[in-house]
Design a protein around this nucleic acid. Sequence first.
RNA 1: GGUAUCGUGGCCGAGUGGUUAGGCACAGGUCUGCAAAACCUGCUACAGCGGUUCGAAUCCGCUCGAUACCUCCA
Length: 503
Amino acid sequence: MNTTKRTLKISNTLSGKKEVFTPLHEGFVGMYVCGPTVYNNVHLGNCRTFTSFDIIYRYLLHLGYRVRYVRNITDVGHLTDDGEDRMAQGARINKIEPMEVAQKYTLDFHDMMRTLNNLPPSIEPRATGHILEQIEMVQRILERGYAYERNGSVYFNTRKFAQENPGVYGRLSGRVLDELMAESRSNLKSQDEKDHPADFALWMKARPGDLMVWKSPWSVGFPGWHLECSAMSTKYLGQTFDIHGGGGDLKFPHHENEVAQNHGACGCAPARYWIHTNMLQLNGAKMSKSEGNYITPEQLFSGDSPLLSKAYSPMVLRYYFLQAHYASVLDMTDEGLLAAEKAYRKMMEVNKILQQLPADTTVYDGSESEHDRAILRHIEEAYEGMDDDFNTAIALAHLNELSSYVHKIANQQIPLNDVSPWVIERLKATFRAFLFDIFGLKDETESANGSDLVEGLMALILDIRANARAQKDWATSDKIRDALAALGIAVKDGKEGATWTRI
RNA sequence: GGUAUCGUGGCCGAGUGGUUAGGCACAGGUCUGCAAAACCUGCUACAGCGGUUCGAAUCCGCUCGAUACCUCCA
């Protein structure tokens, strides 16, 4: 793929519009995505968010861009309702070091990303590894007059910033600072040492008992949650870069404050395009542990939940995500997962059939048949779907249309010589590119068949059954089929003999 | 309470001022010893009520419902 040949459009949540994507430096893309806070096992909603960005990353790569994809690990500064650091809370409860908590759940997160076949980012910086950069950024913001120190803590002066930089604060989230003030007066909380409710912490002075603390010019303490992303995106992608992404729940205050910090430190905007992914619901409502409307990724993969009729594989989950646009709320249901499972398996089967189609490259005469044109149109429309704000649902719909052509060709409902060999080759390449490179799917149906030993045994069993069938010994034939079914193996009788798959 | 987004056929879900999205399920058919699988065909919806328009599911208003966010924390 050549980047110059396609026009990519991105819904930029900063402008609220769909815009043509033009990178800062031709051929290169810098993308920052807010990663997980590693204080707990990864949530299904996180799986959707990071899979959405993985597909965006993969499509940019497919278009030929050289992408630097930075996704952080938050291992300090993200506080709980009670003002305790999430890592420290985990450490206190489990009587271990905060870094053990971070390590444990970072590994868990990486395992899940691998399971879902998400590509690793180019750089995965940790907040605790960039304390110096964060302190320097606070200093710059102080020097430029947009922050103040109070009892060893440093706060961002949101009102001053908003007054001197009209149109910046609130642009991303649609908030109006005056309204924020008005709202907060009614439920003002007394513990604030900030000048103004809209101000937020850049540096927090440690309280007695805080475990994760560092020295700074202001106090022994720790950085504010919003600061790490500003400091690390600047360090690895520059003051201004192409794309900043994250879950929609981070838009305010996290991303709004990030923008303010970057402006405050350098007088310029961080990202030119902001992408926000949407939430994952379960049975029409938000996932909630306390309401019982909740499943973990592990439960999904094991089927161990009253909300599920069976286990679903990671690739079925990925396919489920692909069926919706990343910016839409996606509702997960058992019935929907069953549908996705079936559709995913069919897609993999169709691809196998397609890749085995003969291609006689000698009869190319430069002509285009009606079928050629229809196939090429669907291929183009699949790409146009991806170009239009990474619309995987549209792309998938056209692959399904193409699947029908593959079956018709394989069944000879469409004679093979009615389709030009170069179109067949193009079709094969399109399926490989979309399924594996762009969508990031893996063919689990193939690997699920198992070892050479199993393959050999199955070939033998099916051979014996074929002999029985040839002699119309249906009792033996059905006995084998039923016994295999009981073991979770489905036998499919086709014209060219029997094949098998795991159920 | 405020701000924002959304509400599509049995289910999931794209899209959109006038044209079949797609998948699953379902029904009929082909194939088959039977079944399964596979394939073909069918299934035309946009929360409710008003308004704008030659024409709206798509624009506007209201109502109801869902979700997100609401300033270290929600």
